[in-house]
């Protein structure tokens, strides 16, 4: 029986460490549980007002493997939103048709707003630059699978820490555990947001802001990389100034990193991650993408109360 039954998933901080560990254990069993098609009478609404590939498809596959159905859309075009329908009305309609709603929108706070409107649980699949809690769950689950624990490791989170919601949610997720240390690595213009650092401080997580990966790479157990979020820059000229400002190359990793280092990336990548790393044992990002399905299966089972 799901202990998260009926819960909204707005921020990773809505969850406790124990709830996440229980979710990881359930993700390990998800494909076995799927055989009985436990969600066969359920419908999941996928409301993607912003583009998505992995998140949308993995929710869809997760729901289908559990025997359920999905409805929804993957852009505003072709929906009543394009005719000027409010977000609130769209959510009310989906709430009437489905048992849970997955929502992605470019505005920060849209998922919380949807949850206030809808009777059924709302799962945030990304609200602007703010949160992407299910991605953080997958990322932490990947670390848990690779190292057997999330605690005690040294993390480097590299890239656009100002706008990237996946990086923000991952760092917030780490505060639910006991990491050895977290390095926030970014060009000065893309530093982590003050709100995120406040949570790190409030939860006594050791962290340090640095500008160059080279300076800390040898200490890291996990390197988490995100792309520059071009679509969130208010000013294209600002984007041009930082574009290409960091890049993880195979040469750098092989010359400095621990042999046990694992590299994560929520994908899609642009040019920040050398494709020649793909064939090395450092690359964990394809595993990470794959684990999106069992983790989301476990989450749907929990929330829909099966």
């Amino acid at each position: 029986m799901g202990s998260l039954r009926g819960r909204d998933v707005i921020s990773i901080l809505d969850f406790s460490r124990d709830e996440l560990l229980a979710l990881f254990e359930r993700a390990d069993r998800a494909f076995n549980e799927a055989r009985a098609k436990p969600l066969r009478d359920k419908v999941l609404a996928l409301a993607f007002f912003e583009p998505s590939t992995r998140t949308r498809l993995s929710f869809e596959v997760a729901m289908k493997r559990l025997g359920g159905e999905t409805i929804g859309f993957s852009s505003e075009e072709g929906t009543s939103v394009a005719k000027g329908e409010t977000f609130a009305d769209t959510i009310r309609m989906l709430d009437a048709y489905a048992d849970a709603i997955v929502v992605r929108h470019k505005y920060e706070g849209s998922a919380l707003y949807a949850a206030e409107i809808a009777e059924h649980p709302v799962i945030n699949a990304g609200d602007g630059r703010q949160h992407h809690p299910t991605q953080a769950m997958i990322d932490l689950y990947t670390v848990y699978k690779l190292f057997g624990a999330v605690d005690g490791l040294t993390y480097g989170v590299l890239g656009d820490l100002r706008y990237a919601r996946a990086a923000n949610s991952f760092v917030l997720g780490l505060t639910l555990f006991r990491p050895e240390k977290v390095y926030l690595i970014s060009p000065p213009q893309l530093r982590a947001r003050e709100e995120t650092k406040e949570v790190l401080r409030a939860r006594s997580v050791r962290f340090e802001e640095v500008e160059r990966l080279e300076d800390v790479l040898e200490e890291l157990d996990v390197l988490y990389v995100v792309r520059i979020q071009r679509e969130r820059f208010p000013d294209p000229a600002e984007y041009e100034r930082v574009r290409g400002s960091y890049r993880v190359t195979r040469r750098l990793v092989e010359s400095k990193a621990k042999p046990s280092l694992k590299i994560l990336h929520p994908l899609p990548r642009v040019d920040e991650l050398d494709p020649r790393l793909d064939e090395t044992p450092y690359a964990a990002y394809f595993l990470q993408a794959r684990l999106g399905v069992p983790l989301r299966m476990a989450l749907l089972l929990e929330i829909m109360g099966a």
């Binding site: 000027g84 409010t86 977000f87 609130a88 929108h105 470019k106 505005y107 920060e108 706070g109 849209s110 919380l112 707003y113 609200d127 602007g128 630059r129 969130r232 208010p234």
Partner: peptide, 14 residues
């Protein structure tokens, strides 16, 4: 003050 906050979305009853 955040222009991409959902409360700033035009026409939204929030």
């Amino acid at each position: 003050p955040n222009p991409t906050c959902i409360t700033r979305k035009r026409g939204e009853p929030i």
